[in-house]
Simulated scan of single mutants.
Amino acid sequence: MTAETSERVCFQLQVKPERIPEYTERHRAIWPDMAAALKATGWNNYSLFLREDGLLIGYFETPSLAAAQTGMAATEVNARWQAEMGEFFVALDGAPDTGFLRLSEVFHLEDQLA
């Protein structure tokens, strides 16, 4: 996969402040089958960043956001993970992996250097 064939996705969610320690702990070592499913369905270079007030920023690269979400929706492990993780978020509309607010990219260095 090259940068030309990758969609860069950045999103935000809000973790309930009182749940931040548990949320952080659960992500220290996610379930191995969840990690494998993410990779297999195109969630590449995936990172989460958490501010101390609960603002969560996620970033990943994928050939297609729609295909990555559809692929994960078809896995049993994702259904279990989303059911457990949904309770950690404020004002979530749907599951965390589909209910996030996608952020618009306004700058990418490699694009400007090309």
Score class of each variant (00 low, 15 high):
L103Q: 06
L50D: 02
E7G: 03
E52R: 15
G99I: 05
E76K: 11
L65W: 04
A37D: 02
V77F: 02
R26P: 01
E76G: 09
E25T: 14
F60K: 00
E22L: 12
M85H: 07
A91K: 13
L56P: 01
E110W: 13
K16P: 04
A40Q: 10
N45S: 07
W81M: 14
A95F: 01
I20M: 04
M85N: 08
A68Y: 01
F49N: 11
D53Q: 03
R19Q: 12
A29K: 12
T24K: 14
L109E: 07
T41R: 12
E52G: 15
T75Q: 13
A66N: 02
A68Q: 01
E18Q: 14
C10W: 08
G71T: 05
E76C: 00
A66V: 11
L13W: 04
R51C: 13
M85Y: 04
E105Q: 13
G86M: 03
T70M: 14
L113M: 13
Y23A: 03
V90G: 01
I30M: 11
E4T: 12
I30P: 10
N44I: 03
A36E: 15
T5Q: 15
R102N: 01
R19E: 08
E25G: 07
A68F: 00
Q69D: 04
A35F: 03
G71W: 03
V9T: 08
W31K: 12
Y59T: 08
T2W: 04
W31C: 05
P17K: 10
A74W: 04
Q12E: 14
H108K: 10
R51Y: 13
E87Y: 00
S104Q: 14
A79P: 01
Q12A: 11
V90N: 04
R26S: 09
H108V: 06
E110S: 15
G71M: 03
R102S: 03
L55V: 09
V77N: 02
I57C: 04
A68S: 10
A29F: 03
F89N: 00
L48K: 05
L109T: 10
L48S: 04
M1L: 12
